[in-house]
Computed example of a mutant assay.
Amino acid sequence: MENVLRPVLVIGIALALALLAGWLLDLLLRKADARHPETPLWGLLRRCGLPFRLVLGTALLRGSYREAGVLPDHTVGVGRALTLVMIASTAWLLVGIATAIVDASYARYASGAPDDARVRRVRTQVTLIQRVVTAVVVVVAVAAMLLTFPPMRTLGASMLASAGVLGIVAGIAAQAALGNLFAGLQIAFGDTVRIGDTVVVDKEWGKVEEITLTFLVVRTWDERRITMPVSYFTSKPYENWSRGGAEMTGTVFWHLDHSAPVALMRERLTDILKDVPEWDGRSCGLVVTDTTPHTIQVRATATAKDADDIWTVRCAVRERMIGWLTEHHPYALPRVTTTEAAPRP
């Protein structure tokens, strides 16, 4: 009688402890979810209750089945079965936790992102990463399960070894592709360049329109699309005008005669900027930056809230200043002297 009651009692206690621990965990997650409604993480982790109970119950039985005398004539088979169940349930639990973390992060991001296209793009990238993690966990779990069988240990070890050899071969054969993949992950998590940033690459000015794990698309001002490998942005210098804030300071240069009325131009610059709505009013200035035997170089500066507005400000200042000089001070425009210089007194 004891040979029957003891195994039943051990199995019942293990199942009861697993159910109790699962209930307590679910209670804690429910309270955490109620206290932190801003994130769905705790509610999503409640989905992992079943694999958690299975892992805990299997681990308790795995550690006590010999002493309890569960099927004493088949201890090897019982131990191997419990090990297989524990490996599979652990993989299930890990995949569930990873999925909950990814889904919670995405949901929190999507709730505050106004751009629906960008949200879909992030969702695609997140789904890809999640599938890669799931595949890795499943392969490792299957290999570990095969290693529990003595005749299959060679096969399990060969799977891991072949996977490593294939990984090395694939890495050598697709070095550029893997470099772009890791560069894409570096950009995604390093926040060096983002969608909507204004950048200058290969002397081309444009906005980042799309970022994937392997390539990046820049839309130029004339609506061309430049597709570049993401490794370019991790191995070469480039200008990011939106990094640290979109505000910019623009410059306009003129080459004028030495007699140009610089003081009047400085006053005129202020009047011009007052009529340009794209100027943000932060600062402006006009100075002489260089001189040559025939001309002087005059530089004007103005500010705007982003790259698009600073371009408009620069064009307006350049055009209106030249028009004002032509109309009121034509002598200030550069010219070639064809008469003899005044004699020295």
Score class of each variant (00 low, 15 high):
Arg344Pro: 07
Thr148Gly: 02
Gly206Ile: 03
Val288Met: 07
Ala157Thr: 08
Leu45Asn: 01
Phe253Met: 03
Tyr106Leu: 11
Leu155Gln: 07
Ala163Thr: 13
Thr339Gly: 09
Val218Thr: 03
Thr134Ser: 09
Arg66Trp: 10
Met265Pro: 00
Leu60Phe: 13
Arg53Asn: 09
Leu60Arg: 02
Arg30Met: 13
Val55Ala: 02
Pro37His: 07
Thr134Leu: 06
Phe52Thr: 15
Gly196Lys: 00
Val122Arg: 08
Leu160Phe: 06
Glu67Val: 12
Trp221Asp: 11
Thr75Ser: 13
His36Gln: 12
Ser158Val: 14
Arg131Asn: 10
Val276Leu: 04
Gly49Arg: 15
Ala107Trp: 07
Leu28Asp: 10
Thr234Trp: 06
Thr127Glu: 11
Val132Ser: 05
Ile11Thr: 14
Leu333His: 07
Ala107Met: 09
His255Glu: 11
Ala34Pro: 00
Ala68Leu: 05
Thr270Gln: 09
Ala141Val: 04
Ser89Met: 12
Leu269Met: 06
Met228Arg: 15
Thr192Cys: 01
Ala263Leu: 11
Leu61Pro: 04
Gly184Leu: 03
Asp306Gly: 08
Pro277Lys: 01
Asp308Thr: 11
Val133Asp: 02
Val139Ile: 09
Ala107His: 10
Leu54Asn: 08
Glu2Ser: 10
Trp241Arg: 12
Thr99Pro: 00
Asp257Gly: 15
Thr234Pro: 04
Met265Tyr: 03
Val317Phe: 05
Gly77Asn: 04
Gly112Met: 06
Ala170Glu: 05
Val298Met: 02
Val230Arg: 00
Leu146Ile: 02
Trp241Asp: 08
Ala170Phe: 15
Leu273Trp: 11
Val137Thr: 13
Leu50Met: 12
Thr339Pro: 00
Val252Asp: 01
Asp103Ile: 02
Ala141Glu: 04
His258Met: 01
His328Lys: 11
Ala163Trp: 12
Asp73Cys: 03
Val102Tyr: 06
Leu94Tyr: 13
Asp202Val: 00
Val122Ser: 03
Thr90Cys: 05
Gly196Pro: 00
Trp241Ala: 08
Arg123Lys: 10
